[in-house]
Design a protein around this nucleic acid. Structure first.
Lengths: 119, 119
DNA sequence: AAATAATTAAACCAATCGGTTGACAATCCA
DNA sequence: TGGATTGTCAACCGATTGGTTTAATTATTT
């Protein structure tokens, strides 16, 4: 159905893969508050620096996070563009979860038109 | 940030994992046209039936597809509710990719109010 | 009853996953 | 200078991934 515009969404593999892990989703949640260092990202999960570092690399690779090295700390910032891409992909299916609403609206419109004709 | 409402989205691991594979996303695209059997889902990918069967099981496990066995064929139907869940999760970040639009709107509103006061 | 078609099950494969540990490098501070 | 802090790298672990092949199951057709 939508396959003619497939190449628009080249990063979806990496983005959805990154989002499939609850630790990484939580990290994004924290980064939505403010920029955080690797250490700050690690502590809420009682996870080693190296573990957190790997998760951040996955997020970075998906383009969901950018890193600024300042001194010995690495500041991570949420990068939302790829989230918007994923959302755009999902919204192509919007009509499937809006179908009931859509048909209800169509029904109401039809009734309105019937009313208008009566007048 | 959003972590107080985390348990609302219990299926996100499975859903995002299912969406992370391009074959499965394409299958969903085909299922958006009409219901399809496992064999019909398999053929466009020059993949064994067993391979396609595994992908469908992943989609089923994520709640994105339901299966109706009729005779010896298994008819698969797109189930959009979980897509809507994933979309709802993503939209919590909407303001991050709308920030420029938001501030533009705020600016315009402020100008409108200034105009209104002049009159 | 026999042949064919649609699908799953099971075993296997190399690659990747999420996580650890330990060693190392760079930076800051006293 | 020397010690603490921040982070990466490499190696390793068991589990899972996406895929195959072969065999078995179930349903239809002839």
């Amino acid at each position: 159905m939508f396959n003619h515009m497939v190449e628009q969404f080249a990063h979806l593999d990496a983005v959805f893969h990154a989002l499939a892990d609850p630790t990484r989703r939580a990290m994004l949640g924290h980064l939505a508050e403010r920029e955080l260092t690797i250490g700050e990202l690690a502590t809420p999960f009682s996870m080693s620096f190296a573990g957190a570092s790997k998760h951040v690399r996955v997020l970075e690779h998906a383009g969901l996070v950018t890193r600024t090295i300042r001194g010995r700390t690495h500041l991570c910032r949420l990068q939302a563009a790829r989230l918007a891409e994923a959302d755009a992909w999902l919204r192509r299916y919007e009509r499937f979860w809006n179908d009931r609403l859509d048909s209800l609206e169509a029904l109401l419109r039809a009734e309105d038109e019937a009313q208008a004709k009566k007048k």
